[in-house]
């Protein structure tokens, strides 16, 4: 073969490869798009329905997607009949308080488990491990009795905060992070006469900041979406968090699909914005949570 022939051949192969690549990518994008439709379509439908006016069809075949007569009346109606704003503030209060205190308390507990030798350490560690398998729902009956008779916080937001102040999963995750900090660093600080609390606060916490962020985000999202326990504790409308309030809304607006849709949109959008803002942390957190 001459050089020229080889070159044309190479070019043709290359062109074919590029064509195959493009074709393959189109197939991948089709799969991705199909999955996205399955994931997002119900949300889109809810969103469009929430803007439908009284003359738009909800019950119709074929389905009507786009409202002819778009309106925000559904939002106004829901907002006026239910304290959605209050639900929000309650959810934010519970989420923020729980997260801050939980991370503080579990990070405190994780430090000695990772970096100190003391009597009973293994016993405490295995005790924590054992509580890990106890289903949360199992504790609700006695916790309910405690809430009503002992702590007297039934129907207040404190009832949601206190039981979630320490989670074994977070202790383990933070302990894992502390374990990776070199001991020399701690010994040097101890030589300098730093107290253990100062070492924890000024040296350890800044080092494990990514894990702290992960733990904080997950704790917040869990608190934000928690339903069963809050639904047992919160009775008065003004005290409800979003998921509990949403169920109340579903009950009130049973036949008013537009109203329910508007309520769902109002509760979902803020948490989605929060997610988009912290997306990187989420992904990093997930890769850190399960070590390969």
């Amino acid at each position: 073969m001459t050089n020229a022939q080889t070159l044309t051949l190479a070019r043709a192969t290359h062109a074919r490869r590029v064509r195959n690549q493009i074709l393959e990518n189109i197939v991948w994008y089709m799969i991705l798009f199909l999955m996205a439709v399955i994931t997002v379509l119900p949300f889109l439908w809810i969103l469009l329905t929430s803007f439908k006016g009284p003359h738009d069809q909800i019950v119709s075949i074929p389905l009507q997607f786009i409202p002819n007569d778009p309106t925000v009346a559904n939002y106004v109606r829901v907002w006026n009949q239910l304290p959605i704003g209050k639900f929000f503030l309650n959810s934010i209060f519970v989420g923020v308080t729980t997260t801050l205190l939980n991370v503080f308390i579990t990070a405190l507990a994780a430090y000695p488990l990772a970096k100190m030798k003391f009597r009973g350490r293994d016993a405490i560690f295995y005790l924590l491990l054992a509580t890990f398998i106890i289903p949360a729902q199992l504790t609700y009956i006695p916790s309910f009795v405690l809430a009503v008779n002992v702590f007297k916080y039934y129907d207040t937001l404190l009832a949601l905060v206190f039981p979630s102040l320490a989670t074994v999963f977070n202790i383990f995750l933070l302990r894992q992070a502390f374990l990776s900090v070199p001991n020399d660093l701690l010994d040097a600080a101890r030589m300098d006469g730093a107290s253990e609390f100062r070492i924890w606060w000024q040296i350890l916490l800044p080092i494990i900041r990514p894990t702290l962020a992960t733990v904080a985000i997950f704790t917040f999202v869990n608190s934000w979406n928690d339903f069963l326990w809050p639904s047992l504790m919160l009775h008065t409308r003004d005290n409800m968090t979003l998921p509990v309030g949403l169920i109340a809304l579903q009950g009130m607006f049973a036949s008013d699909f537009r109203g329910v849709a508007a309520g769902v949109v109002m509760t979902v959008v803020p948490i989605l914005i929060f997610f988009v803002a912290l997306q990187r942390q989420f992904v990093r957190g997930l890769s850190g949570a399960v070590k390969g």
Binding site: A36, T39, V40, V264, V268, I271
Partner: peptide, 16 residues
């Protein structure tokens, strides 16, 4: 996008 249902919470998503 695939993460949207996870974030939105079972109750909101479940109503939809």
């Amino acid at each position: 996008l695939y993460y949207v249902p996870v974030i939105s919470g079972t109750i909101a998503v479940g109503i939809a």
